Simulated assay, not measured.
Amino acid sequence: MSPVDRERPTALVTGATRGIGLAIARELQGDYHLLIGGRSEESTAAACAELESAEPFVADLLDDESLAAAAAALPDLDVLVHSAGISIKGSVAEVTRDQWRKAFEANLFAVADLTARALPGLRRRRGQVVAINSGSGFFTAPGNAIYSGTKFALRAFTDVLREEEREYGVRVSSVHPGKVDTDMQAEIVEHDGTTYQPELYLRPESVARAVRTVVDATEDATVEVVSVRPSRK
């Protein structure tokens, strides 16, 4: 990290090599030194190359040892954005136990583990934790039991964490986008067998601006929950 980078607050964004996570990194780059979370050195390096002040945070969030090793080298963070996640569709009758387990590992357990490891530094910096949740954290539908289950659980986690960390000055926010024009959304539409219409969805940049609003809140204020919905149906 260069001397100029050391003067910036530090933000870790998981899932920052594409989609919403990369859009968030781009939105924050003017003011933060960024840690770009991703599973491979190649993908994180490519994202870092286009950003003003960034370095890789390489970890497989589904692997305990990989996450622990990466988190052990973390500096004190001013902002931790959890954007990594997966979507698994299917009816309760057809999905498997392994699919349930994988989704909860990615969308909840990894979030909880990384947050716990980062909390000492976040407390020292009176930092912020921002979880990218989903509209599925409020509402569910047939075929969405796994994804909604993980997102309802993530909402409960952030609600509890917010109350636990008030005395330490760590602010906790939950951002709930509706359908977003990402690779994940395209995969969902393909699974459903319908036509992909990106004009009906939020742009990743719109979600990133909502995150910017959250992290720019003055220290006396916590933007606790944000819901961002597409304007068109």
Rank of each mutant, 00 (worst) to 15 (best):
D64I: 11
E167D: 14
G135R: 13
S134G: 00
R124C: 04
S206M: 14
P75F: 03
Q197Y: 07
Q99D: 10
R229G: 01
L154Q: 00
H82C: 04
S174E: 15
D78T: 03
M184G: 06
V228P: 02
A49G: 13
Q29S: 10
Q99A: 10
T195E: 15
F138I: 12
M184F: 03
P75N: 01
R229T: 15
K233Y: 15
A68D: 15
A11R: 06
E7Q: 15
P177Q: 08
E105G: 01
E205T: 10
D31Y: 07
Q128I: 11
L28S: 06
A25R: 05
I146H: 01
L35I: 04
R26Y: 09
A72K: 14
A93Q: 13
Q29C: 09
A45M: 11
L77V: 08
S40W: 04
S83G: 10
A156N: 10
V180C: 01
V172P: 01
L22D: 00
E105P: 04
T17K: 00
A141S: 15
L62Q: 14
G193Q: 02
S136K: 05
E165Q: 12
S83E: 09
S87I: 14
A54Y: 11
Q128V: 11
R8F: 11
P75K: 01
R101F: 12
D76L: 04
P142T: 11
V225G: 04
V228M: 05
E7W: 01
A106L: 06
R97F: 13
L161F: 02
H176V: 05
E205C: 05
P56S: 02
G85W: 11
D76G: 01
A153H: 05
V223E: 08
L200R: 14
P230H: 09
A59I: 14
A71R: 07
L34A: 05
L202S: 04
V92A: 08
A103E: 10
E199C: 03
E199F: 07
G127H: 02
E50I: 14
S87K: 11
E163D: 14
A16S: 06
P142D: 04
E187H: 06
S2W: 11
G193W: 02
Q197W: 06
Y168P: 01
E65L: 11
A54T: 03
A217K: 06
A23E: 07
L161N: 01
A116I: 02
F139I: 12
K89E: 14
M184K: 04
F157Q: 03
Y147F: 05
D60P: 11
D181I: 08
M184V: 10
S66A: 09
A71M: 10
S227I: 14
S43Q: 13
G135T: 12
F152Y: 03
A153D: 03
V160K: 06
E190K: 13
A118E: 07
V214P: 10
G85C: 06
L67T: 15
A186I: 10
G15H: 08
A46P: 08
S227L: 15
S174R: 00
F152P: 08
S83K: 07
K102Y: 11
A11D: 06
A68V: 13
E50K: 02
I146M: 01
T140A: 07
S40Y: 05
R212L: 14
A110W: 08
D220T: 13
G121Y: 08
V172L: 02
C48H: 07
G169F: 04
P56D: 01
L202Q: 10
P75V: 00
V226R: 09
A110Q: 05
V95H: 02
G143N: 09
A11T: 08
L61H: 00
A208L: 08
V228E: 09
